[in-house]
Design a protein around this nucleic acid. Structure first.
Lengths: 230, 230
DNA sequence: CGTCGGAATTGATTTCGATCAACGGGTGCG
DNA sequence: CGCACCCGTTGATCGAAATCAATTCCGACG
């Protein structure tokens, strides 16, 4: 039984929920806009990105069915990042004040929200681990594997990815250049792990890909766990 | 007036708080251990790190006075990361169930917790931006600047950093090697931005360092903001 | 007070990914 | 229908950081 990150049904009775349609390239919100809602993706694909004042932009993640959007903006007046649809998408909109109030009243909802917030943090940390310790090809493998896993959690086939984002989005997310993404994909294909045709990626060897998603060379990790008391 | 991330006073009346002493190298918790509390640093310095099953380790951040610890573990049975003291430190321990229950009852506490969780996410995202878009030297500058800012928020002098972590910890956090940290520090010193003697770092030119903490070369950002509807 | 070992700095060389460049292919629009 | 533009792939070269290596610094402890 797929454990959804966010089940809109839990909230539907407690807060007025509106379903929004987003077309390709349409922004759910942008940095600078007022914060007035949280969102849960119903169907579709969104890209989250953080931006610096000097123009730098970093893709932080991608959101699909069941994922929360906007949690990072709790407590803020204005959004600090962008959320844009990569595809035709539908999201549930939950007025933020009403939602937080509902969480204060209903213990189960509060737990849901805490869960979602903590899960977001863990996901970010886990990705930071990958970014900090893996090379380009391993990162890409980890990324594909993550997509596959999320698809299967939604009850979809996991070995057939129809990736809605451009190579450049993937590259930015992986903190590498898009040429490197291409090359890494080709290498994975040459190893017989995946079959790539444009945005249609088929995973041929899931365990092999999983192996590739961990450190290939003689990684040491660096920090060195010294003898710790207690 | 310094706006603290977490004010222990808010919780002290509502949950039984215990103050814990941690000596250098002592673990507050380790991956695998049961989750039973949240923590707020009183004084000292802690290092958070995420670890992979294959031994890779990534330093996620450092915690000092007023910072929460353990938020990432909400909803988990067992910790997935390490929290270790770099220095003699004192932390407040808040039993997790009692604390979450208190948040459910008291709106102000709930807001505090949401705030802290969301702030953690924003901090992570902001650091991901730095990791993804800055070179080694710029990252280091950003790191020093962040330490300085946090010190000043605690009411301490900001331009004198007595860094309790080893180069290797910094390196891991910055996702570079410790030799590179050394070289980058030396370069910053040669530019007259900082004075370094071991772990005693003096910031000589704050604005200059801030300039260094942004992209030096002709960064483009990559993703390319296309014409967005709405 | 000396020495021992981990931490830090600096140098030489290698390597991985970035950059520069060229080209193929699909798609939307005139 | 065909052109133009963007996306993606691949090749050649460059460069920043990793790796390998040698010292120096410094604190702990006998």
């Amino acid at each position: 039984m797929p454990e959804h990150d966010a089940d809109i049904g839990d909230f539907q009775g407690h807060v007025p929920v509106v379903r929004h349609k987003l077309t390709r390239e349409q922004y759910l919100y942008r940095a600078g806009q007022a914060v007035h809602a949280l969102y849960i993706v119903d169907v579709g694909f969104l890209r989250m990105s953080e931006l610096a004042d000097d123009g730098r932009e970093q893709v932080i993640g991608f959101r699909m069915g069941g994922d929360w959007i906007g949690l990072e903006s709790i407590g803020l007046k204005q959004h600090r990042c962008d959320a844009v649809a990569l595809d035709l998408s539908y999201v549930w909109e939950l007025p933020i004040e009403r939602t937080l109030a509902a969480c204060a009243e209903t213990r189960a909802l509060q737990a849901r929200l805490h869960e979602a917030l903590a899960r977001e943090i863990r996901g970010d940390w886990s990705w930071m681990l990958a970014l900090g310790t893996l090379g380009a090809e391993n990162r890409l493998a980890a990324f594909l594997l993550d997509l596959a896993e999320r698809r299967s959690r939604l009850g979809l086939v996991a070995d057939r990815l129809l990736i809605p984002m451009r190579r450049i989005d993937i590259a930015n997310y992986l903190a590498i250049k898009h040429e490197t993404v291409s090359r890494a994909l080709s290498r994975l294909e040459r190893q017989g792990l995946v079959a790539v045709r444009g945005r249609d990626v088929r995973i041929l060897d899931m365990p092999g890909l999983a192996r590739e998603a961990h450190a290939t060379p003689s990684e040491d990790g660096g920090v060195g766990r010294s003898r710790g008391s207690s």
